[in-house]
């Protein structure tokens, strides 16, 4: 049996590298640890979800279709993505070229007591994305692989999926902004200007 690749990357280092390369991409952060991770470098172009588990990818699809000239990047966790697996099929079928999905995959539900998720038991999210017609879907294990893919994730013009394996280290919540209406209005005003209030 070939040994599995080891997940050794640190989630906050992964997020820092991504957000440094975000350019003017619009970001949707899924609930839980990825929401807190994204909050370490707050930006009005980030929409934070604190609820609606399983919804992040589909919020990204709606945004990508509404803003076809902008890159839209969804960053979420393995548990959050597993709850909305149908989104892989829906997004693969629609195939928007300006959308990238990234799962920060520690193979556990870190908010609820570190129970293993299905990705810990051999389920491949990249395999699911490939089977759902994503033209580009890979699992990332190293900083080198991550650095090589960030420019395309945030500035490319193809539908992409990346499952980024990280270790199980937990960090404190780094974001205090929880009011959903405020997060939505801030994002829309920054993107649309006065039209946000028409």
């Amino acid at each position: 049996m070939p040994s599995r690749n080891q997940a050794t990357m640190d989630r906050r280092a992964v997020i820092a590298a991504m957000l440094a390369g975000r350019k003017d991409a619009l970001i949707v952060a899924g609930l839980g640890s990825t929401c807190y991770d994204a909050g370490t470098a707050d930006h009005p172009n980030t929409f934070y979800l604190w609820g609606g588990m399983g919804s992040a990818a589909m919020v990204g699809l709606g945004l990508a279709l509404a803003q076809p000239s902008r890159r839209v990047v969804v960053i979420t966790g393995d548990g959050e993505m597993l709850m909305g697996l149908g989104a892989f099929a829906t997004i693969g079928a629609k195939s928007p070229r300006n959308l990238a999905l990234i799962v920060i995959d520690n193979e556990h539900y870190s908010e609820t007591g570190m129970q293993p998720t299905h990705t810990h038991r051999g389920v491949s999210l990249a395999g699911i994305a490939t089977a759902c017609s994503f033209p580009s879907a890979e699992t990332i294990y190293t900083e080198q692989e991550l650095a090589a893919t960030i420019p395309d994730l945030f500035g490319g013009s193809a539908l992409m999926f990346r499952d980024v394996k990280v270790d199980m280290k937990r960090y404190p919540m780094s974001i205090r902004m929880r009011d959903g209406a405020h997060i939505k209005n801030r994002f829309r005003e920054n993107l649309l200007g006065q039209k946000a209030f028409d």
Binding site: L26, S55, A64, A87, F187
Partner: peptide, 26 residues
């Protein structure tokens, strides 16, 4: 009009939140 066929209805609730975030109506 852009149409999206869903696997389940809750996908559409989330999608239309994104639609509005992007300044469109659905």
């Amino acid at each position: 009009i852009s149409t999206v066929s869903l696997t389940s209805e809750e996908e559409g609730v989330a999608m239309l939140a994104g639609t509005w975030l992007g300044g469109k109506r659905g």
